[in-house]
Every structure is written in C-alpha cells, then in structure tokens.
Nucleic acid binder design. Structure first.
Lengths: 334, 334
DNA sequence: TACACTGTCGTGAGCGTTCACGTAAGAGGA
DNA sequence: TCCTCTTACGTGAACGCTCACGACAGTGTA
C-alpha cells in the first residue's frame, strides 16, 4: 500500500517548511517568486494533491456546498445540478448532493447531515418545504440559497423564476385564444403555498372566469402523476378545453391519457407545460412550455452562495429570473 | 457564531472519556449497556453529530464512495444514481458525484480528484473510457467498480448487463418479424469497444444479412443525437425498415425525424430503443425497449464496492445482470 | 494467597492541513 | 551606529476524531 504524499513530503524534498509549501500552492503572499516556482515544480513531480479532509479540518472552509434536490431524475432539476456542478468544478468547489424524493422529513434531515459534513453553504432545490418551514429551522448559521421559493430570513436568500407570473401569462394566453374553461394539473401539497396555483387563480379571477375545485387536480410531479391526474379530470364532465400543468412531465403524462381516450391535442384539449425539458420539442404533438434558463439559475445560485459565504452578515435581495413562453403544437388553435 | 458540539463536549457532559463516547456512537464493544444508554441520551439532548471530516482524518475510511457518471441528465444514469444513493444513505454512506459529459480526459481527472477527496472506492458509470484505459491507470489501490464494461484488472470489478447479448436478441427479433435491412444508431467512439455494435454484428452475421457501413450511424447519446443520426440515415436510400438504437433518447429523437419526414413508425420503419426510460411508455407511438433493472444494478454495485473495500485482496468475478425485451407499439407489425 | 483473565474505561499520539504567531536578514533613514 | 520597517521564511498549536495501547477493578482458578 503506497502512502499518499503529504505536504510534509513536499516540504522536505523542496528544503522548505510546511507553511511555505502551503503558501505556494494557495497563491498566498510572503513568498519569493523563486521558491514558489521551485515548490510548484516539486508538487508536480511528486504528484502531490492536498487532502480536502485535512484542509477542511484545519481551515475555515471546506470548499464544498450542499445541494438538496427533490428528485434527480426530474430533467429540469438534473440540468440545474449539472450546471451548478459545472460552475463549482470551475472554481474547485465540490457539490454534495442530497436526493429527497420530495419527503419533507428527509429534507430537514438532509440539512443537518450536510452540516455534519461541514459544507460551507446549502442550495435548496425542491418545492416540498414551505417558506415558513425553511425560514424557521436552525441551520447553524450556514448560508442557504433557496431556488424557486421566496424566503425572507437571516442567512437565507432566494433565487426565483416567477412561476406565479409565468402561470398567469400562460392562463391569460389560453384565455386569449378562446378557452373558457381551463383545468389545472399541479403538484401535491397545500395550494396556498403553490405558486402555480396562485398564478392560475390570479389570471382566472382577473378575467372573471369560473373557478371550481372540479378544475384542479393534484398528483405527483411525474409522467405517471400527470397521467393519473388527467384520467381523473376526464371522469368529470366539466367542459375543460385547456390545461396548464405544473411541469412538462405531468403535461406529457396528461397528453398520453387524452390520447388513450381519443381526445386530440390541441383540437379537443390544449396542453401547456412548464420547464421546457428536451422532450417537450420531441413529443407528438410538441409541447408548449415555459422556458427556464437553468444555466442562469445555476449561475445565480452559485454566485449568491459564494457571496453569502464570504459576507455572512450581509442580507441579499431576492433575485428574480426571466422566463419565456414557448409556443408549440399542443396549444395551436386550428 | 454558535460553536459546534464536539465529542469532547459530550464526553465532559456525560462524565466519561472521549473514547467511551466514540465506543457508544459507533456501537463498539467494551462498554457497558448502562453507560452506552446514558451517552446516547446525552448525544441526543446535545444534538451532537460527529464530523465526517474528522472521522475521515483519524479513521481508515471516509464512508464516502465516488461515482463517475457520464451525464446526470440521462434518465437511466440518473435512476441508477438515485438507487445507489438510496442504498448508500441507508448505510450512512456518502456519494460524491462527478459529472463528466463523457469527456475521457475529465473522467481520468475525476478519478484523481476523488482520490484526493479520500473516497473509499469509486463506481464508474460512463461508456467513454475503454476497458484497457480503465485497466491501465493508477488509482492508488482504491477499489473500482465499473458498470457496463468488462474490465479485468486488480482492484477493478465489473457489473454488466449484457448489452451485446441484448442487442443480438433485439436484432434477431426484428429479423424474426420480417425485417431484412436493419439500421444501427449508436454512440460516438470506436466501434470495436461498442457492445451495442458488437451485438448487432453478431446477429446480422449469424443470420446472413447484409452488413454495410451505410447502415451504421453514430452521434451523441441524446435526443438531438438520435434525431440527427436518423436524418442522416434518411439521406441514404438503403431500404432500412427497422433500427436499433443505443438508448431510448436516441430512439425518441429518431422517431421525431421520421415523423417529420412523414414516415410512420412502425409501419414504414420499426424502432427499438434501449434502457426503457419512463418516457418510453408515454411517447407516440410507445417505444419498444430493453429494460434494465436499475435498482438491481445499483444494489450490485454498492454491495460489490463495499466488499472490495472490506477485502482489498480478493478478486471478484464479473456480475452479469438480466435484461428483458419490452415490446411496444414502435415495433408492432400490422 | 497468588496469579491470570476478562470487562470497562482512560490516555497519548496521530491523521494532514491552516492559522496566528515568532524570527532572522536586509534595506533605509536619522 | 542605532533604530525601524519590510520581506521571507519557520514554529507550535489546533481542528475533531480514531487507533493502539495502558490501567484498574472484579472474577475465577490453582
């Protein structure tokens, strides 16, 4: 079993002290250009790589940020992770992932587990916990960035793509193209806390359309969830001619249910998704959706968490990101 | 800034030594039931959580395994990760993810970065590196489990779902239903190392069908990759009536290209996917595919890596997992 | 009584870094 | 010459655990 080379090995070989090697590899001041070069050369030759564990122990930061994610198989969340990972990797940061399956208990537990992992900060990407739950709990002063939720609390900062406004636009668009009865297929959980539902209600009310519990269907945020919700919708004869869904997966599931019942999309029923996942432009019919710039979301989140780590006392304002309506076949009126 | 409670805090409060607390929380021997209970009570009250960093420093293991993944937005890889995460979480193991975008240089770099992270073992889930590349490199004696590749080397063990055999079955099935000219849409990279291609060739040759470079198309393992490959296929008038694809994403992309050209699937051209992602049963037409039991793959990989960590000298045999043909509309002959 | 053994607990060292110092040599000014 | 300041290093401690011991009481055996 070959021993790992340590900073002491390098120091001995280079004929300097441990601390000088540290200064060299961390680009600190108080070292001459000559010695730095000599040390870096030696580092390269010996294949020395500093241990993250020891660095975390001794230093104040671990250069690791935790990411709590609802479900990594969700294409949008996966894409945000991928982008976040890309940025983090570029600055030698580490991402420690926690997959919670949207279970609120597990999400809370994950926060503590990440803290025991000594992460510098936590990014929260899951719609499960309510804003007040997030604001309430003790996170040991570690900065938290919450994506897609407005949370106002110390050490917590938000990055939101305004789903309420986006959904309002969607519903208004559907109304504008002549739809009078619009159904809502959304995620499980309290509706008060559901930005999708809120946007829907705002649009429906402002246009004076009828709102009925018979138009709202909740299920899991998956293909199957959308499929089941749509089946349920079809059991009610409520005259729905268009639906807005919580995300594209639910929309695609719903479209399958409609197809199986011989209902053509968009002629019999129009379907509007959310997230604009890659499948949305490959389905039949192609799916209208809301485009989220996941790279931008990730970039903002990464910058924000870094800022918060560097300046723990500063309170940062909520960042709001643009979204775009992408119109495709599933809502085209012939 | 509230200080974290350490093992010493707990020891002082419980009136025992540090080591006794360690014995209690790690379920070690040499401690009476009474003291253990008293300590655990105190641990709970004080909300003590051992630091993974310190454990890693002091102990021989970090309880962390690295996972090198080609692309987390790929549904199958995401699902395998999710399952691996589930098993790992259950045994208080940590997964450290590396997303490589199939770039071979990044994959090699990731191995070293994971080693500097002091992981106990590495699981490799990406088709990019060849078996010999994997077998060759120095991993500092850390055990490696490679999924979907046969590698025979010390400290490296394989879990494969036999893609060669599965693809052979697919092509034989297509031939059995009357297809004479079968196209192949597969990933980029050398074909020698491509198990999909090998299975295809075995079937085609054994049945005495024509094999031509005009029947093989390579592109990225994505929806777009499949779409582009299919477009290319359509430029050649090669009489293809069925294709087998490297995965479902490519199949779905290809189906879109066929649809755009007015070719109906399966009547004009049959399409067979691979992986059986959730969306395969929601597309129009639904997609025939190969089902991989990703939970089983993850379970095997996790057990294997644990075995290898525990018994570094033992050489484990390759594990081969079953696969199933799932027949759906995209290959139904009317 | 003397001895070995077993169960329960404590002690010191060490993991590989960074941090807050201390120190020595040389430059510059009065 | 003496003092101060700056540059370029080195030194000990600390981070929070585990590991390999050592110690001490109680029990059994000759």
């Amino acid at each position: 079993m070959r021993k790992k080379t340590t900073i002491d090995d390098v120091a001995r070989e280079a004929g300097v002290s441990r601390q000088t090697v540290s200064r060299a590899i961390n680009g600190m001041e108080g070292i001459s250009a000559g010695t730095r070069e000599r040390i870096m050369e030696m580092v390269h030759v010996m294949g020395y790589q500093p241990s993250r564990l020891a660095r975390g122990m001794a230093g104040s930061q671990t250069k690791t940020i935790g990411l709590i994610i609802g479900n990594i198989t969700n294409p949008t969340q996966a894409e945000i992770f991928q982008n976040l990972y890309k940025f983090a990797e570029g600055e030698n940061y580490n991402i420690m992932l926690r997959n919670t399956n949207y279970e609120s208990e597990l999400e809370l537990k994950s926060v503590y587990s990440l803290i025991s992992e000594n992460v510098d900060g936590i990014v929260f990407l899951s719609p499960t916990l309510t804003s007040s739950q997030l604001a309430d709990f003790e996170q040991g002063d570690r900065p938290i960035v919450v994506i897609n939720r407005s949370v106002s609390a110390k050490h917590i900062s938000s990055i939101v793509s305004d789903m309420t406004r986006a959904t309002k636009s969607v519903v208004e668009y559907l109304i504008g193209t002549g739809h009078q009865t619009i159904g809502l297929i959304t995620r499980l959980g309290s509706l008060d806390n559901n930005r999708h539902f809120c946007g829907y209600m705002q649009a429906v009310k402002s246009r004076g359309l009828s709102t009925s519990p018979d138009l709202v269907f909740q299920n899991e945020i998956t293909l199957l969830g959308g499929y089941l919700a749509a089946q349920q919708l079809l059991t009610k004869s409520n005259g729905v001619t268009a639906i807005t869904t919580y995300n594209d997966l639910m929309a695609l599931g719903a479209m399958k249910a409609f197809e199986e019942r011989g209902l053509s999309v968009p002629d019999s029923i129009a379907v509007f998704g959310y997230d604009d996942i890659p499948y949305a432009s490959y389905s039949t019919p192609t799916l209208s959706s809301i485009r989220i710039n996941s790279e931008k979301v990730a970039l903002y989140a990464f910058h924000r968490i870094k800022e918060m780590i560097a300046q723990p006392e500063v309170i940062f304002p909520e960042a709001v990101l643009d979204i775009d309506l992408v119109l495709r076949e599933s809502t085209m009126r012939s």
